[in-house]
Amino acid sequence: MRYAVLRGLFFLLIVKPFLLLAVGVNVRRRDRLPTAGPAVIVANHNSHLDALVLMGLLPWRLLFRTRPVASAEYFLSNRWRAWFANHVIGIIPVATSGGPSRAEILGPVREALAAGDIVIFFPEGTRGAPEQLGKLKTGIAWLAQQLPTTPVCPVYLHGLGKVLPKGDWLPVPFFCDAWVSEPLYWRGDQGEFMRMLAESLGPQIEAG
């Protein structure tokens, strides 16, 4: 990967110090995060920081195999943003509105997983208001059905929508939280899968 050095430096010099000093993410049950690919990390989505935080939670060796699924319309809309998103972050661009079939839209995600990558996926499809879970799209259930042995690891993020909300450019420091839940697997029922997912992406009651 030609851009691996760039990504490493970006995380080492900018993302990690920023998250440590300005934000301070308190992770609970980090041990439930995947330790190898393929795996899907799903989270609620309120801020551009979400994907960076999730990538920063993983060990360095996995950073270079981790790819956030992101809206092609938004991230590829101008040249510089596209270059940064594609090469430094390493997004998998997908069409988020209309057009082709689900298999076509999520095909590249499936391929990345088949190749052993870790994929970051926001089932709300877009950033919503802070601390409110939007309606979950069922694309994630389709992916889980296609790859029933791949763990789907839900992470509930809290506070990042306050640090850097949608439509704002100035990050303001607040402490944030991330709760990692038990990984989910496809059990043959989409309604059940989506219900369990929605439960894991809300406030978690601390057990033990």
Binding site: G24, K162, V172
Partner: peptide
């Protein structure tokens, strides 16, 4: 800084005041 950050995380703040909070930091 850490004490103020913890305090501002705990109390309810208004989204319109984001830039004011930044000034406070």
């Amino acid at each position: 800084f850490l004490a103020l950050k913890e305090y501002l995380t705990l109390i309810p703040t208004r989204q319109t005041d984001r830039q004011v909070l930044f000034l406070a930091y």
